[in-house]
Amino acid sequence: MLNILGKRYLFFALSLVLIVPGLIVMAVMGLPLAIDFTGGLLLEVKFDTIAAPAPADVIQLYEELGITNTNVQTSGDNILIIRSSFVDDDTRASIISAMTERFGAEPVVLRFDSVGPTIGQEVTSRAGLAVAVAALGVILYITFAFRGIPHAFRYGVCAIIAMLHDGLVVLSISAIGGHFFGWQIDSLFLTALLTVIGFSVQDKIVVFDRIRENSAIFRKLDFEKLANHSIVQTLQRSINTQLMTSEFMLLALALFGGVTLREFAIILLVGLFMGTYSSIFIAAPFLVVWEKREWKTWFKGSKTASA
């Protein structure tokens, strides 16, 4: 039989490799927050008849209109994505006509978003609250779902550790994506993150459920063997339910679903994969670590994190 739990420290190390670089990028450069959180203006225009003007020219035009903090990103097909600070209605309405006049062709507006600074603040605080409430809801739910078995608290804590792991991987990927591919953390990203958190728990419940069932059947078996047996039993199911169904759909969305949903689909894709991965390679191993109280040996040098 596959011995997954025996290699548990290898998997812990692997997760750290996934999480740490992103966290470093985040700590050094910050998260690429979209105007949903910061407030501001986002204009995405396409020039059909002429070549898109140089970013410097656009910035200059914006400055003449009295708009600050302008940042221009070019994209294929003569598309410009222009971000700047929030302005009043009249100034905003004048941007397109000013562009038409300056560059000699009317740009096609693909997207034009304007978010007031107070809204941005409110979205941010509510986002924080939503994540907190989601985490709390999950804790309560797990406590409820495992109320009848010994060490229900352990299961809850391990599920939450794994959930945090999934969230951190998603954050890490987004921070890296933000700095290399120009991704933005917007409310859709948050939606993806909250969904990942929700689905993450779903998987842990299925795996824990099997451990619970087996511990009633094999009373004498060593806990590590029992947990490993349970994981292997559910492995097929985990792979099939998550990877082969939801992931197929998301992969199709990421590849063919158009620009607007690409980041969303990729984050869900990675996040849901992590949800499945962490229930097998993080949550269950942590249960074993807890059962054996292995932290007592962590600092004695006999077993290292890279074992």
């Binding site: 759909m249 992969l251 199709a252």
Partner: peptide, 28 residues
């Protein structure tokens, strides 16, 4: 306090692509 404008071309493009993506995903 907030406005969001989506141009008709982007909207149509997104619709077509997401339908395609849905069909491909479903086929898989």
């Amino acid at each position: 306090v907030e406005t969001r404008v989506v141009g008709p071309t982007l909207g149509q493009d997104s619709l077509n692509k997401s339908i395609l993506a849905g069909l491909i995903g479903f086929l898989l």
